[in-house]
């Protein structure tokens, strides 16, 4: 199960007939008949807050399992993996960026960047020299000077870039970002997205970015609204 090699399928992510309700609630938050992410694609997922974007992303990472339907990532059906297997799979193939507070405050910037390589042998091996790649990413993101600082000493913009470096180290196949720019001001927002694309391209990593901010959509290959694909939302507003 460890570092399962993905089968050769067309889509990186393939979702079919997904239904999910939070434990203890009757109304499903998500009902997504179909969704897919192609290799090296840059996909923008938008929707107002509370619409279920974060929920959908945490299903894709295998943290939660849907009550119905299937999620295949790199040809691997997540439901077929054990809990620990999904954790391992996530560590190996997914990079994740939160909206804010991405970093462990007690680790230095560079230790934060190298974190995923502690949990995945595959990413450790792909990075080859973990420290060298971490330094390279930090350089690309203009963070070399702060590499040994505690992560708490950084500005929000810097923190988001460190999170980006961490998500990309060891070249995972997919980068998932949940409102990564919401804490940034408009100018730095675009610069961040640009950097994100450059680095993702370098690592041949596909990007799935969720945000309520429609303005970002233009830079992406494809843009979809969660409301379009999620049939559960309709029910919720009845």
């Amino acid at each position: 199960m460890q570092d399962a090699t993905p089968g050769q399928t067309a889509a990186l992510i393939q979702v079919a007939g997904l239904e999910f309700a939070w434990p203890g609630t009757k109304q499903p938050v998500l009902h997504i008949p179909s969704f897919s992410l192609k290799p090296a694609e840059r996909l923008f997922l938008h929707g107002p807050s509370g619409s279920g974007k974060s929920t959908f992303l945490s299903l894709l990472t295998g943290i939660h399992l849907p009550q119905a339907g299937s999620i295949s990532i790199l040809g691997q059906n997540l439901a077929a993996l054990s809990g620990g297997g999904r954790d391992q799979f996530r560590a190996s193939h997914l990079g994740y960026v939160f909206q804010q507070f991405n970093l462990l405050p007690y680790l230095s910037v560079i230790d934060n960047v190298m974190l995923p390589c502690r949990f995945s042998r595959l990413r450790r091996e792909r990075a080859n020299d973990v420290r060298a790649q971490a330094l390279h990413l930090l350089e690309r993101l203009d963070l070399l000077t702060v590499r040994n600082k505690p992560s708490t000493a950084l500005s929000v913009g810097q923190q988001q870039r460190v999170a980006l470096a961490r998500a990309l180290i060891g070249a995972p196949e997919i980068l998932i970002a949940d409102e990564p720019t919401s804490a940034l001001d408009a100018e730095r927002r675009n610069a961040f997205i640009e950097l994100l694309f450059e680095c993702a391209e370098e690592n041949e990593t596909a990007v799935l970015l969720a945000s309520h901010d429609q303005h970002l959509a233009t830079a992406f290959d494809r843009s979809i609204s969660l409301a379009e694909i999620n049939h559960a939302t309709v029910n919720r507003h009845v």
């Binding site: 943290i63 809990g83 620990g84 996530r90 462990l104 502690r118 995945s120």
Partner: peptide, 15 residues
């Protein structure tokens, strides 16, 4: 909680 979520996101298992 934040710390736990971060660790989970980089691949830490629940156990």
């Amino acid at each position: 909680r934040r710390e736990m979520a971060i660790l989970r996101s980089v691949g830490a298992r629940a156990w």
